[in-house]
Nucleic acid binder design. Sequence first.
RNA 1: UGGGGUGUCGCAUAGCAGCUAUUGCAGGAGACUGUAAAUCUCCCGUCUUCGGACAUCGUAGGUUCGAGUCCUACCACCCCAA
Length: 376
Amino acid sequence: MDFKLEANPGGTAARAGRISTGHGEILTPVFMPVGTVGAVKGVHARELRDDIKAQIILGNTYHLYLRPGTGILRKAGGLHKFEGWDRPILTDSGGFQVFSLSERRKLTEEGAWFRSHIDGSKHLFTPERVVDIQREIGSDIMMALDECPPGTSEWGYARKSLDLTMKWLQRGWKHFNETQPLYAHSQAFFPIVQGCTFTDLRREAATRVAELGAEGNAIGGLAVGEPAEVMYDMIEVVNEILPADRPRYLMGVGTPANILEAIDRGVDMMDCVMPTRNGRNGMLFTRNGVMNMRNLKWADDFSPIDPESDCFVDQVYSKAYLRHLFIAGELLAMQIASIHNLAFYLWLTGEARKHILAGDFHIWKPQMVEQVSRRL
RNA sequence: UGGGGUGUCGCAUAGCAGCUAUUGCAGGAGACUGUAAAUCUCCCGUCUUCGGACAUCGUAGGUUCGAGUCCUACCACCCCAA
């Protein structure tokens, strides 16, 4: 993997860059659609490529390990072939499941024990095992195993948690360097900065992560219950330390406004389930604000979903029709909403890139933040 | 024209003397941030100073300390005979 910084204009920490991987280039800043179980829910590969213009998508180690299992993925020749996606893939390590499945797991120094949410069986995720599984998945970018503590955690817990994450990081990094890819493309390993909402812990974590010299670095443990302003502060603190010549990945963020604020603070890559999950639940993100498509007010609004978008679904379908599909419980409603939202997120990060390259990002951003935050 | 049955918030249901009338659907709104999520929460008779207040089980009477629940009449619908 290689990263070229193309623009880093004054007046903002925002930057534009270019990541090359064994599955092609990624222009940054970039939003990465989430495809946890080997599928971006409700969206197929041609829509991802042609309508959404996705450059890279996610998969999840925990979910793919449980089902279909690494045996099947190896037989398939890796996740790219299995799911029919020939562009880059990034896999999360299962670290987020340490957070989201907290009632079903137990942490030890050795690793994280999970009781499967599918059949209740017990599994141990160690920093080494998680690298091995991601080798079998064949993702272009793999993530370190970490503990993602809630945003409301106290300093004492955050301290202990960070120590564990750092120990796991050393082991995962060592194992990554001692193992080889199983398929014919290279893989990168991204360490993750934790430290909750505490500046001292974040600085320490960022310093130690930077020392590894990985091909890219991630910021985790944000947008998990803390106020947005605190999240922005933490991004700033961390990005002052993380190397400028490597991509920075902000994990799991966020709303369109969150994404613009993160880019403004020097973040290059982001992912989030919001465009797909909220889309399935009737919420549309647009450049003019947010719409709840189930609301009565759209029942007779026959204007296009997004008149300014050149995305197929935005031009062809009306708001009234989409509302009808949601009220009728039709699958198509969720597909249209997911495609629209992802296309919008990719448009937004693409537009940010254009304005960074043009040198007027600092003017464009505040106005766009205001626009996308409206409730329609 | 006889005989039998049934009427509960838009629809469907539970309740068959004990105080606050159940549940589902439909309808309205909100939530969702490295996906256990096509999920979850709230509202859904009227008024409210959000503490409550007042109504209400086809209609009208009656029995009873107390009636959606029992009795009588009427109305409506359904079924079976002609």
